[in-house]
Design a protein around this nucleic acid. Structure first.
Lengths: 223, 223
DNA sequence: TACTAAATTTAGTCGTGTCTAATTTATTAA
DNA sequence: TTAATAAATTAGACACGACTAAATTTAGTA
């Protein structure tokens, strides 16, 4: 039986790894809200050849191995399905679904996973725009551009909002900025650390606390 | 923060206690699927005056104190709401809802509890016929009679099925014996350890593995 | 090239919850 | 009333997952 601690470790590692980047102990520790020494202890355990969940180069970093990635994807599937289910079926606001799913993801059965997926029509995107791994754990690769790279005058469609900070999500939700919504970048400041956007016929200023967490697809380029 | 182990201990104690009976260490240990020595360790912890969750008379037994009963009722509310939600909203069969709820009951937020209750119209009875404590933790006292006490010829309505054994529940469900269903006791054997009943125009034999776990209300007495 | 600062790991400790084995207490039958 | 038996508790160990403090390694700078 895989403990919740291990599931959580592998899930957060998966999310930080973002493909196959090497992940630093301290980054994962921050994500797991624990001291780096605790993370190292877990690393040693999960890198042992009997498990081979991760690969570890001491003082360099860690990376998922196939064994560990399967578990991580299973947990990510649970997490994102639950987020969508809570949002759609029970009306939980999108800034709250993450924390709730964080606890539920470790305790639902495969049968319940299946039932939620069926109830939602086997969805592939969660409330934040992130792809939901399928029952086969295959995951969709979304085509998107960081908002920071968009030129002034462009109209875009929101693809994904990465952060789980409730305050930010509440703000973005209030102005109508969530997956599939469209908006136009009116102005872009010199170093790109501030944008003026028009969304739902209102203009808003986005700063460094928001821009890095939004990815979009271009809908209409400037003339 | 109250751990899942403590929540579980208090919930199972509540269920064994059935009012205010004293509960034996070994009975609770069996329920918790652990060794009696482990149960004693937990008893000592929860009976300490700083917590005062339970009352303990060594070698006699234990009983909930108000502090512990509140927590137990909160967990029972979660458990029964979840059972009903899984059954109604996701079609989980009634022989599976218990095991699923056993894990979920410890991790849902008060907000989610509220949303499920609302979605179900603030129900007061779970899929097995057990009363669901309200948001104020008040609990309905059901008026019912053990099936074992019913005389031949009586027609009854099922009030509650106590056991969580999946095989038994599946069998009872298949013949149509679940809360609110009606049936007639056709014959009663000498020592009451076997009954012939008529339900949905079919007759079935109920034995000692089923009779003690069913409670009913009389609908029509024999002529 | 040597030194310093930051990141990482190691060593040792602790709390929680479980276990087995040994002991104590309560109950029942002689 | 006492002896046998069953139940409960105590004592001691262990796995897990966290922590702090100390030592080590790496990387960047003088």
């Amino acid at each position: 039986m895989i403990s919740q601690s291990v599931e959580n470790f592998l899930k957060h590692l998966y999310e930080l790894q973002n493909g196959d980047k090497w992940v630093h102990t301290s980054d994962l520790a921050r994500e797991l809200k624990q001291k780096p020494a605790s993370t190292t202890a877990m690393i040693k355990k999960l890198a042992a050849p009997e498990l081979a969940f991760i690969e570890h180069i001491p003082y360099k970093g860690i990376r998922l191995l196939p064994n560990g990635e399967m578990i991580a994807l299973e947990v990510v599937r649970h997490h994102r399905l639950i987020e969508l289910y809570l949002s759609k079926a029970l009306g939980v606001p999108w800034d709250q679904v993450h924390d709730e799913a964080e606890k539920l993801e470790h305790v639902i059965s495969e049968d319940l996973e299946q039932r939620m997926a069926d109830a939602l029509g086997n969805p592939t995107i969660d409330p934040h725009g992130a792809p939901i791994p399928g029952p086969d754990l295959k995951i969709l690769k979304l085509d998107s551009t960081p908002l920071s790279e968009i030129e002034a005058g462009t109209t875009v469609r929101v693809v994904e909002v990465y952060d789980h900070n409730a305050e930010l999500l509440r703000y973005l939700g209030n102005i109508g900025l969530y997956p599939d919504a469209e908006f136009t970048v009116l102005e872009k400041e010199e170093f790109g650390n501030s944008l003026v956007i028009e969304i739902n016929n209102a203009t808003h200023n986005l700063g460094e606390n928001a821009i890095p967490y939004v990815s979009v697809a271009e809908v209409k380029k400037p003339a």
